[in-house]
């Protein structure tokens, strides 16, 4: 097999990275929630699709540009995340058994999927703007405008979360709780408060991801599950609980998918992505960007 030209490799790399950033932003939210609650929030994908429907509704009924709706979706996500935690997870989070929280997450996923079906129907929905399906020149190759915007949203969202975690007192409390909840609690940090903050930010990121999804892909109420799965793979690649690693994991997953599609076959894309997921969990369970776990 002859090696493709540098232009083709660059094209594959840019498009793979742009696509992967979408998984990354979903994984960052999962990572934050897992960090404090030790919960894989399986409903994250459904929340992203719910956000995409809201973005579409804002665009269709109020004429608000999808990218401008970020200013609405992020605060709405923060409030919704806070309320979801307080209303559904607060009691379960206090339990030693994490399965209860996991079951609630599954219940939330099905509830949101079915609510969306009742409200908007099961058909494929899409947002069509003047810039839909527009291409731009990026580093000398063609790239999608909306995916490039999605990439910027993912970068900005992750950067803000990292700044929040490193530079603010509340953020430091979230980090402390994610490292050792018992020690953090002994230091006077309220576990419910940090859990609620992590949830709020996680759902706000779902709101931001919803903007990227709505402008780029068609979607239906059940499309979120694949997002949750891919975000989970990105999370494992980047290191569970590692925010920047989650974004990087998403980008790596996007690159794996693009290279697999090009060099092997489109039919192998998912098999290889999930194979890599299993291999990482088996041989480097702490992820590609974290230090190995200390042995007891």
């Amino acid at each position: 097999m002859t090696l493709p030209s540098p232009e083709i490799l660059l094209q594959l790399s840019i498009n793979g990275a742009l696509g992967g950033a979408m998984y990354g932003v979903a994984a960052v939210g999962l990572s934050l929630i897992f960090g404090t609650m030790r919960l894989i929030f399986l409903a994250q994908g459904a929340m992203i699709i719910l956000a995409a429907y809201l973005v579409r509704a804002l665009f269709q009924h109020l004429g608000i540009d999808p990218f401008l709706s970020l200013l609405i979706m992020v605060p709405v996500g923060l409030v919704a995340g806070w309320l979801i935690y307080q209303g559904l997870f607060r009691k379960a989070a206090a339990e030693e058994d994490r399965n209860i929280s996991l079951l609630i997450a599954v219940g939330v996923m099905f509830l949101v999927q079915n609510l969306m079906t009742v409200i908007w129907g099961g058909n494929t929905a899409a947002v069509v703007t003047t810039y839909t399906a527009s291409g731009i020149e990026l580093l000398g190759v063609r790239a999608s405008f909306t995916r490039s915007m999605g990439f910027l949203i993912a970068l900005a969202g992750t950067a803000l979360v990292v700044l929040f975690l490193r530079k603010t007192l509340v953020g430091k409390a979230v980090r402390a709780a994610s490292e050792d909840m018992t020690a953090a609690t002994l230091m006077g940090i309220s576990p419910h408060k940090v859990n609620a903050i992590a949830f709020a930010i996680g759902i706000a990121l779902a709101g931001a991801a919803g903007v990227a999804v709505a402008t780029t892909f068609p979607f239906n109420p059940f499309a979120g599950f694949i997002f949750s799965l891919k975000a989970l793979v990105a999370l494992a690649l980047g290191g569970i609980g590692n925010v920047t690693g989650a974004l990087a994991g998403g980008i790596i997953l996007g690159l794996i998918e693009a290279y697999t599609q090009f060099f092997i076959s489109g039919g192998w894309t998912n098999a290889i992505a999930y194979g890599v997921f299993l291999a990482v969990l088996m041989f480097k369970p702490e992820g590609l960007f974290s230090r190995p776990y200390k042995k007891a």
Binding site: I8, Q11, L12, N15, G16, L18, G19, M22, S144, T216, F217, A223, I226, G254, E257, A258, Y259, T260, Q261, F262, S265, G266, G267, T269, N270
Partner: peptide, 15 residues
């Protein structure tokens, strides 16, 4: 070539 269902990126196939 087959394509994966539910994928979000077909740029490599287009290339």
């Amino acid at each position: 070539d087959p394509w994966a269902t539910g994928s979000t990126d077909y740029s490599a196939m287009i290339t």
